[in-house]
Write a protein that binds this DNA or RNA. Sequence first.
DNA 1: TGCCATTTAAATGCCAGACAATTAAATAAC
DNA 2: GTTATTTAATTGTCTGGCATTTAAATGGCA
Lengths: 243, 243
Amino acid sequence: MKIDPNSNADLSAQIAKSIRDAIISGDLIVDQRLPSEAELSDQFDVSRPTVREALKRLAAQSLIRTQRGATGGAFVNKLSFEEAYPQQITTSTLLLSMNAISFETACEARYTLERSCAPLSALRRTADHLATMRAEIHRQSQPGLTDEAFCASDVAFHRALVDGAGNPVLSYQLAGAVEAMQPLMNMITFSALDRAKIIELHNALADALEANNAIGVDTALAGLESYTTNLAKSVMEKRKNKA
Amino acid sequence: MKIDPNSNADLSAQIAKSIRDAIISGDLIVDQRLPSEAELSDQFDVSRPTVREALKRLAAQSLIRTQRGATGGAFVNKLSFEEAYPQQITTSTLLLSMNAISFETACEARYTLERSCAPLSALRRTADHLATMRAEIHRQSQPGLTDEAFCASDVAFHRALVDGAGNPVLSYQLAGAVEAMQPLMNMITFSALDRAKIIELHNALADALEANNAIGVDTALAGLESYTTNLAKSVMEKRKNKA
DNA sequence: TGCCATTTAAATGCCAGACAATTAAATAAC
DNA sequence: GTTATTTAATTGTCTGGCATTTAAATGGCA
């Protein structure tokens, strides 16, 4: 393997890229053991710390895992949806907060994507998904619930809806859009009236899903989107007037 | 800052998590300079290489950038959509290839998400988006185009459609779903007849978009999905019979 | 005073060598 | 044959150092 020591990029970045490309291209397959750090430093003609920095970069992306001990080493990691979720959510959250994305834009994206799952979920949702949604609705109706807990339950409710589509790829892509909204949602104070309205729409949604009524689900989601957007708008207005 | 040296996790992983949490929570804001590596090793009571490994983990996620020189150091990076795209695509691609996701499942997710953008794109697409799509259609009709180039053009075409929705969050989420399909698509050989049919549907799609006809766009996308799925199915069949 | 060249200091990038901790396999003891 | 011990391989971490880069401080000169 050849690394250009005169490149602008760090050696560790170049080495990481080299190994990453090998994984993506299939030259390194899942569970395959990489050469030991000592061997890698020989191959790339760099020191061990530099190799280690490269490996940490890959570990940060869950592309490899390491094991200590005699038969240890770095292994190509089978990237699972479970591992990818949190990274996807972190990235999405930071993208929203660092790029001045308006609540409206984020909300539009979220509900647009979510509504696309509605027909599939109406078709395929299991009793489990329905039960989860009903349970979350119940939680949402409990008095004394903090706004944060209310939002968290809302997210769980909507994830069950998305998971109902029975397509892991959809669930993964949606996770970012739905969960990344939470910090934005947490800026809103939900009055008892607001909650009642949202719960009403959640009930309508669950009912439609139970009846395999795709159009009903879509209608409820459209209602939620407009209600949420308006709620956020009025909160922003109030905050502006105060200032 | 406190780090538990008896934890199961690596020190560098703990330090990375600590800094990452500070960024997510807003304790560290964009463009803020982190303490120097020497200061961090003092604060966390670890050696400099360990701190460096932690910083490389964060750099791999584009959460920080580093600068050499007198006023250099590590700075909280403003995560841009441009930076996040490749990571999103890499992760999505690996998820598909490592988790035995069927072509059908991936295709369903892709077109489900894409169809959700159709109404917005029909409403908001600019002349630029249309021009890009027409140009890609033209490229696709050129004889002698390799299958890979055909697929790449297909991706560019569909990205223009998605971008037409004018929602950067949607564009970001869709990028993973659309681009990650490319390796799967590249396994298919497109006959001249197949290409003609696809180009026909692309034309219908562009026409509908030009006429701000959301239903027409959706119909064309549905046609593309079923055609692509059937094409893949027949390819798999042939391959099975050979073996 | 004002401008340019030089020096200096601070920071990251990289390296060599060592020791600690962990783990599985080989070996020895019973 | 089973258990305890040793050994070897590997990652995790530390110390100390040098190279490189960069901006700011310094000094020389007109």
